[in-house]
């Protein structure tokens, strides 16, 4: 139990995938222009990341390792991620048209989120168990969601700020992300098992 809490704290704060490991920067900058889109993206990513880290673990442990095909890891993981994104999209469309309206356009984007592949690969590299892998994926997506939502709200405020012309838009957003990353260095040293 304590180990799982450490995994969560570590992935959400200490080794935040966006601000510390610098993975998943494309959606972080691309979908943070307004808060509702960012919330939708966070929810969809949370679902897909947890699902794909679980299925990638199962595939690796029960198919690749017994067949000695570990060198196909990256390739199969990409396939698994694409499949779980597709699965999520189909399920959402069939089960809840409302959710589809909110999340619809973001779901395919998740396939290109490098944090998703990063989580699957790190799980294997650090040879985690099944439950740990799922928690790692879930924690990573929660960390992603936390900074994405905060960042989107901050960017909405920056839109109306009197920022000097050369720094408007992406420039000031990247600087904000940099200062956020500096601030997250304050968590270093936490969550050592």
């Amino acid at each position: 139990m304590a180990e799982l809490v450490v995994i969560l704290v570590s992935t959400v704060l200490v080794n935040n995938f966006v601000l510390v490991r610098f993975l998943g920067l494309c959606p972080f900058l691309g979908v943070s222009r307004n808060l509702e889109a960012a919330t939708g993206m966070s929810l969809a990513t949370a679902f897909v990341l947890t699902l794909s880290s679980a299925s990638a673990y199962l595939l690796h442990a029960y198919v690749l390792v017994p067949l000695d095909l570990e060198y196909l890891r990256t390739l199969t993981f990409i396939l698994v991620i694409a499949a779980s994104v597709q699965f999520t999209e189909i399920m959402v469309r069939r089960l809840s048209p409302l959710l589809d309206q909110v999340l619809g356009i973001y779901i395919p984007l998740i396939a290109t989120n490098c944090a998703v592949l990063g989580v699957a690969l790190l799980n294997v590299q650090e040879s985690k168990g099944f439950v740990q892998s799922v928690f790692y994926g879930f924690g990573a997506s929660m960390g992603f969601a936390l900074v994405l939502v905060m960042f989107a709200a901050a960017r909405e405020r920056l839109e109306v700020a009197d920022v000097p012309a050369p720094f408007r838009g992406t420039a000031i957003a990247l600087m904000t992300a940099g200062i956020m990353s500096l601030a997250f260095m304050g968590f270093s040293g936490m969550a050592r098992p």
Partner: peptide
């Protein structure tokens, strides 16, 4: 300093 900056980011939210 870290705590204040982190909460500053959270202020708009």
């Amino acid at each position: 300093a870290f705590a204040v900056i982190i909460m500053n980011v959270a202020v708009p939210a």
